[in-house]
Design a protein around this nucleic acid. Sequence first.
DNA 1: GCCGATCCCT
Length: 577
Amino acid sequence: MAYVESLLHNCASFSHVRQIHAHLLATGLFQFYPYRAKFLDYCATAFSSGLRHAVAAFPFIRLPGTNDWNAIIRGYAQSDSPNEAVAWYVSMSRAPCKPDALTCSFLFKACARSLSRIEALQVHAHVRRYGFFADVLLQTTLLDAYAKFADLDDACKLFDEMSRRDIPSWNALIAGLAQGDRPSDALLLFNRMREGNADDNSPNEVTVLGALSACSQLGAIKEADRVFEYILQNNLHHNLIVCNAVIDMFAKSGQIEKAYGVFNSMKCGRNIVTWNTMIMGFAIDGDGVNALRLFRLVEGRGLKPDGVTYLAALCACNHSGMVDEGLDLFEKMEKNGVFRNMKHYGTIVDLLGRAGKLEAAYRIILSMPTFPDAVLWQTLLGASKLHSNVKMAEEASRKLVESGSSTCGDYVLLSNLYASQGRWGDVGRVRNAMNKRIKKVPGFSYIEMNGTVHRFFNGDQSHPMCREIYEKLEEIRVRIREFGYEAETKYVLHDLGEEEKENALSHHSEKLAVAFGLISRNGGGGVMNVNKNLRICGDCHAVIMLVSKLYEAEIVVRDRTRFHRFKDGGCSCRDYW
DNA sequence: GCCGATCCCT
């Protein structure tokens, strides 16, 4: 038996696996359960074409045992068609042998990957019935599956009920929270673990990846620094994947120099993800020159640009207004064997649209080989609004409504366009249509001050320092007026008088956050960082530029798509966004 | 023996 295992582990190619298979058949060992099951398991998981081979061999087994089934189920669980694992489990349940904890573990994995929630619930019930549930590893796999279905409350409940938890259990929940839109909870859990309150488990490489991802999403600068400090102290920065996530985190929290510092000092080598992350980092920072410089270096390092590399370079062109360079990349990528997907189209449509080439953007959407995504029409709508092209905006809106995927934001865009033209009848019509829909994403901004995160909604009056904040806003309004500012009331949706419109604008969440930041900085310098969940509004952009000059403040706003660095009355986006 | 992992359009 030992020699078969040793042969298996020394297979350099799939043809070696076939030779071992032939040997087992010739010697009759194939019908001997332990040999065969080991062989099948190796065959189905170690090589890409091995699963088909194992599946083809399966019918020749006289009486398949649990591990034979497990081998196939495991193989499918990690294949491109994980749902097949469930189908095999159904067949297995009709066979004489019984599933074991391993079978269920592979099934949970398969369910997690194919997002088959119902099937997972059924297997969960079986697990309880069979009495496998005491198994920590199995519980962790299930926890991970729940997290991937976004059943985070169930995942937390399972976690709390576990009698024993190891590092992967913690990691599964932290990563689940981070990826499931609860990054703050992920950080809380990470910090608990770091402070030694995690069943004697300390964070490892995988744990910090969850924490890094949480910081990236939040754009949380202080937390980002703290997580990095932990990584250095515990020598986790020799791991390539950790480094890639660190670069992403620094780039997404507005610390592009730190991101580039890590990129340049990596001792563990760089892979294509490293380059993609750094290029995208420069892109969202509005530094198209550095992004394209790195893009050109990729091939020289023996790496082949992939779809994400091109996407990052296209994003860089988009955010820096480099239309010709972007079009050139878009043309070249397919010649270089990289297929264009929806995201590439989305970026090029935005690039052309923002540059005012609405017809060209429209033609690109129509010329696509696949059915255009709602995002493409939303992008075209946004560009039409930017360039006040009512006809194109109406066309894009029509397509969105037809596709059944129009959102609140789409209606707001169209309505704002009508409003800017004074077409109040159309505004009312669009608003009525919008109000029939329930889903609204409220705009909010947040700013961190002395370790506390302060969050503001539009027109928010719930902050303890509400009075001071609104007084500050009034002061800002007066000072920038003296400086020659006029409110760009076209950004207001409603049919209000000019003065009321200005008020509606002046209480946008990003302005509240900036006013609060000015009050709280105690005259001290330093950069003020504001995060916003949606895109920054045009009036806020203009106002914050002036604030940066009149109050000598450097203000960085991270919005949904990029960073804006306001300084001395200007912005790093050079008004192109 | 089975658990946890990086970059991606508006």
